[in-house]
Design a protein around this nucleic acid. Structure first.
Lengths: 155, 155
DNA sequence: TTGGCTGCAAATCCTTTGCAGAGGT
DNA sequence: ACCTCTGCAAAGGATTTGCAGCCAA
């Protein structure tokens, strides 16, 4: 669970540092983000926020999402097809297994992978900010459903 | 270097297997793909193809790109912002370091990472088809340009 | 009071689709 | 001939932007 207050504080600081102003709408959006699941589309977020305040416009959601990205509260993810998904960074340390068939998303967190990629960054003199690591394929369930079908190579 | 003939053959087989027909335009697009760099947008591809045949339409490029994905000749990649990039799969075994400042893309290939992710897939009973692994941050050049600036945490 | 925030609608950007004609088998 | 491929233009979906009024500092 993420501490909402911690996030609000981070947002407030960002707002002050950049001569912006705080607003009720923005807080509402941030709250909705912590309530909804780990991967939210702008549209899902909009609907959720509108349940509490139906006058909120889509533009505000997008504008707020951009601000939240700037202060590292969320990360935008563009999986294949469709709209972007947004994710709280506190959640985003993990990576994803995505089933190409049923579209389910399994989250994982593997130290070996993490360490390996840090080494790669070092090798190229890169300062790592964040990463995305997505493995696409068939999940166990879909695999079973297919029975003894063709199959595929790893990668 | 990828063998263009090998790719053409794969395309031809896919076409026959699915009751499609081959076409000059499609071959042209495939050729352009092997000529241009490792990451091409649909638009870049369109321009390149038009240098050889100016009557080609954007729709054809998109339709062809979809077919080429179906027969595993290319992979679509949606990095942050902007249009999709397409990449020949023979090239796509590597992953990417992407500079958030200058937008440069460094390709890398790390066995430790590869092995680690295969292990993860196995753990979840996943059949891996392909993956994407992108590390975002500041490249060495931009890092130097910034001098002794704030910095960031790893991830 | 000032300058940022907001909703709305229009505008963009990238990609897909419908349709009538061209082209491959 | 038959059915796919193509260009064109229109449609689509997601996101951004211009503008006039609202609101926080």
């Amino acid at each position: 669970m993420i501490l909402l207050d911690e996030l609000k504080k981070r947002l407030r600081e960002h707002v002050q540092r950049n001569g912006l102003k705080s607003s009720t709408r923005r807080d509402l959006i941030l709250e909705a983000l912590t309530t909804l699941g780990p991967h939210v589309t702008a549209d899902q977020l909009l609907r959720a926020v509108r349940e509490r305040d139906e006058r909120v416009g889509a533009a505000t959601v997008y504008r707020t999402l951009r601000i939240l990205q700037e202060c590292d509260i969320i990360v935008e993810r563009r999986f294949e097809g469709g709209a972007s998904l947004y994710e709280l960074v506190d959640d985003s340390h993990h990576d994803h297994l995505i089933c190409v068939e049923c579209k389910c998303i399994i989250e994982f967190d593997d130290d070996a992978v993490e360490r390996a990629q840090e080494k790669v960054a070092l090798k190229f003199g890169f300062e790592l900010h964040y990463h995305r690591h997505e493995l696409y394929g068939l999940c166990a369930k879909c695999l079973k459903k297919r029975g003894a079908k063709p199959g595929a190579t790893a990668r």
